[in-house]
Structure formats: structure tokens, C-alpha cells
């Protein structure tokens, strides 16, 4: 009763063509199995590593992740966590990943704008300096920040996966505005772009992002086949982790807490029965 089926993100609407209409529709997200589902689910480290590569090589060209720091990659539960380096800031692999990225900074002596190799304490750099610049480079649409995108969209990871794999040619009878792409998983109202029968308006909406993934676009270090489905699944898992890096800690802590509370309740139950055993009530 508490699900609010209409809580679609405002930025999603911003990406849509036309005014925000009341009768939005979209296809149900695809049903995908994730290793991190369920009360004991954990992230698949290899998948997170592949997903980071997809983000780094594809998504990061347009999408920022302002809540993410390079050190996060090496923290417990992260894609590049190493038992030997409890402190992610010492993790040499994370350091080298950060070093590969150029960070904008100010020279402390001259005050000039410079770029320098990144460190573990640096944020993931944003592709655009500000919102107008991002819009100007993307036909007026703002590529949303991906830090918590897996929580900011109804449907979560399944929605992300569905969007990434859901691009296909618009059905005959649909007028697609320039710079927009049809995606059945995108919430939208197609009725004013549809010339076919009024009762057969296709579900879905327009998205300003061109299909970002292509077969072979990313070469996975572990030799996984670089299909669109694989790339989409891995990057969705990476975004799920990025949205809540403490998820595994939460579930583990929760297991202990539930067992404790259950035992506590049983103890109290017997204590209660014992105290009340001679009282008619």
C-alpha cells in the first residue's frame, strides 16, 4: 500500500520531450537476477570491477558521480578492496586508478588553474564544469548525476538495466523529435507523437541520451564477453553499489541484530509467562 507508483524522477522528466503530462506510461522493468538481492545478498566484486570500467570509459563522458571518491573503490565491499590494505588510501591499485585521471586544481603557489593526477581523496571529476555547460553540450538535456541513481529511480537497478538495453527503433506511426530517442522503459506520454489508433499508444517515452553501449565498446580485463547486455548489467550493478556502498555492512549487521532481537523476545516471553503465571487476566 505504500508503493508510490508515480514517484518518477524530475530529471527523468527533464529529459523528456514535450510538457509533463499526467498520463505517463512505461514498460515494466525487465526482471534481472542480481547477486546483491535478498537479505544475504552480496555484490559480485568482478562485476563491480567491470561495471566501473564501463562507467569510466563510457558513462563518465557525460555523467558526474559527485558523491564518489576514488578511495571508495578500495573500501570494504568496494570493487578493488584488498585485504592487505584496510585503509583504501594505501591501496596501490586504487592509487593507480586515481592517478590515471586528471583532476582540475589550483596551483597553491601561483593561483593558476592546473590539472594534476588524481589521488584517493579526490572526487570522481565531473565532465562538465556546471549545469549550463552540461546542458549546452547535450542538446539542452542535463545528464543526471549517477551517484545515487539506482535509488533515485522507481525500479532501481532493473530500471537502469532496462533503459540501457531497451533502445530500439520507434514503432511505425511515431514521430520522434530531433535529438530524442524512443525507449519503452522511460516514463512518458506518447499520445501526442502517435499517429496510430488512439487506444494503442505505445508505452514509454523519449530520452535525450543516445544508446550509450555497443558490442565490444569496453574490453573487460577478465575476458567476459563485451555484449550490450553484459555491459548494461555490470554498470547497473556498479551503480547499485555506488548508491549504497555500505549495503553489505547493513545486511550483515542486520542479521546479527535480528537474531539477537529474536532471542531477546523469546527470553522476555518466558520471563513474562513466569511473572504472570498466577494472575488471572
Amino acid at each position: 500500500m505504500l508503493r508510490k507508483a508515480f514517484a518518477f524522477a524530475a530529471l527523468g522528466l527533464a529529459l523528456m520531450a514535450g510538457p509533463a503530462l499526467s498520463a505517463t506510461t512505461e514498460a515494466e522493468p525487465r526482471d534481472v537476477h542480481w547477486s546483491f538481492e535478498g537479505p544475504l545478498g552480496k555484490f559480485d566484486k568482478a562485476q563491480l570491477q567491470r561495471g566501473y570500467k564501463v562507467y569510466r570509459e563510457v558513462c563518465s563522458a557525460c555523467h558526474a558521480m559527485n558523491q564518489m571518491y576514488f578511495r571508495n573503490l578500495g573500501q570494504k565491499g568496494g570493487p578493488f578492496y584488498d585485504e592487505k590494505y584496510k585503509n583504501p588510501n594505501d591501496n596501490p591499485y586504487v592509487k593507480s586508478l586515481a592517478k590515471d585521471i586528471q583532476i582540475k586544481d589550483i596551483d597553491q603557489d601561483t593561483g593558476d588553474a592546473i590539472t594534476r593526477p588524481g589521488g584517493t581523496a579526490d572526487r570522481f571529476p565531473a565532465p562538465f564544469p556546471n549545469e549550463p555547460a552540461a546542458r549546452a553540450s547535450n542538446g539542452g538535456a542535463l545528464p543526471p548525476d549517477l551517484s545515487v541513481i539506482a535509488k533515485a529511480r522507481e525500479g532501481g537497478t532493473a530500471y537502469l538495466y532496462s533503459i540501457l538495453t531497451g533502445f530500439h527503433a520507434p514503432p511505425a506511426g511515431m514521430t520522434v523529435p530531433p535529438g530524442k530517442y524512443y525507449n519503452p522503459y522511460m516514463p512518458g506520454d506518447m499520445s501526442s507523437f502517435w499517429k496510430g489508433p488512439k487506444d494503442k499508444v505505445p508505452v514509454g517515452g523519449f530520452i535525450a541520451m543516445p544508446p550509450p553501449l555497443a558490442p565490444g565498446k569496453v574490453t573487460f580485463d577478465d575476458g567476459s564477453p563485451s555484449t550490450v547486455a553484459q555491459q548494461a548489467k555490470d554498470v547497473s550493478a556498479f551503480l547499485a553499489w555506488a548508491a549504497e556502498p555500505k549495503m553489505e555492512e547493513r545486511k550483515q549487521f542486520g542479521l546479527g541484530a535480528m537474531i539477537y532481537l529474536l532471542g531477546f523476545s523469546i527470553l522476555l516471553w518466558f520471563s513474562y509467562k513466569r511473572i504472570w503465571r498466577n494472575v488471572a487476566h
Partner: peptide
């Protein structure tokens, strides 16, 4: 619950 206990003793400390 022990609803039907008749002649209840409200003090639990006097039982054996």
C-alpha cells in the same frame, strides 16, 4: 493466555 485460571493469586513470590 491463562484466562480461565480461577482463584488467582496475584503474588508470584509465594508459590513453590
Amino acid at each position: 493466555m491463562a484466562d480461565t485460571v480461577v482463584g488467582a493469586n496475584p503474588d508470584p513470590h509465594v508459590t513453590g
